[in-house]
């Protein structure tokens, strides 16, 4: 449990951070919930670690014209317990409250979880369902990437080595929208065997909007657009929900590991999709 030698920088501003990252060789440290264990196991041996932990600008929560901007360094606990987040974007708050355990929620960060893109992490399900946008900043420029282009594969995102995530941009939930995050916990790690985030809004007796994000089932989190399409326009009856949920694993290559086979994961994904939608309705 002893990492290899590395250089350590602790920038005080975003600009200092991206300057340090400009050569593309350094590794970013946020809450350290993934990177530090990997380094202690020597599975990761970066020569230079840039610790964003002391940059105050990255822990802000602001509302701006129908969007909620969450700083990348907000801890899961902060996201889960912020009154503003709970009111404006309850799905992300609820999801945050299900992550890991109390210690992880007090250390781990929103941006760190997104950037690590663990196939079983909780946040990505909600970020997909929320169609979140990610602001990426590098030395001389910045860009905003939609979540659909952000998660590329297992542990792989659109973030380039020179970039940091500064904030996630989430929609302020319209009145009448119900949300829910439901997960089957992997008992050792607390990660999701399968986790499903749902947002549903009914209008005039029909489902006007449905968004479903899924984690744990595939190599990376995804939006279950097949489920959404089946649900939208339906009455949202129990049968409608069941029929829609059955489409959650369509075209998906399901993960298999010690804790759950791919067949079981598929089944659980359907059950939890139905439950998340029911709870959101």
């Amino acid at each position: 449990m002893i990492p290899q030698e590395f250089n350590y920088s602790r920038p005080g501003t975003v600009q200092e951070a991206v300057d340090l990252l400009a050569d593309g060789e350094a590794k970013v440290l946020a809450g350290g919930m993934s990177l530090i264990p990997l380094m202690k196991l020597r599975l990761s041996a970066p020569e230079h670690v840039v610790d964003l932990g002391r940059i105050p600008d990255l822990s802000r929560i602001t509302e701006n014209g129908g969007s909620l901007h969450l700083g990348a360094l907000l801890t899961h606990h902060q996201v889960a317990t912020s009154a503003l987040v709970q009111e404006k974007c309850p799905l992300i708050a609820e999801t945050a409250s299900h992550i890991g355990d109390a210690q992880v929620r007090n250390m781990g960060t929103l941006g760190g979880s997104a950037a690590h893109a663990d196939p079983a992490a909780d946040y990505p399900a909600a970020l997909c369902a929320l169609e979140a946008k990610v602001r990426l900043v590098r030395r001389d420029s910045e860009r905003v990437v939609g979540i659909g282009d952000f998660f590329v594969d297992a542990l792989t995102t659109a973030v380039e080595p020179e970039e940091i995530i500064t904030e996630l941009i989430l929609p302020v939930e319209e009145a009448g929208t119900g949300v829910s995050y439901q997960k089957l916990r992997q008992p050792a790690s607390g990660f999701a065997i399968v986790g499903v985030a749902a947002r549903v809004r009914k209008d005039g007796g029909r489902v006007a909007m449905a968004r479903v994000g899924v984690t744990g089932l595939a190599a990376s989190a995804y939006r279950a657009t097949g489920v959404e399409a089946l649900l939208e326009g339906s009455e949202g009856s129990q049968a409608d929900v069941a029929a829609a949920a059955a489409a959650v694993d369509e075209g998906i290559e399901a993960i298999s590991d010690l804790h759950a086979s791919s067949d079981y994961r598929r089944h659980v994904a359907r059950v939890y999709t139905a439950r998340a939608i029911q709870a959101a309705l």
């Binding site: 599975l43 590991d257 804790h259």
Partner: peptide
Amino acid sequence: VGQRLMDT
């Protein structure tokens, strides 16, 4: 320590 990621 990586069994869950091996398949993927």
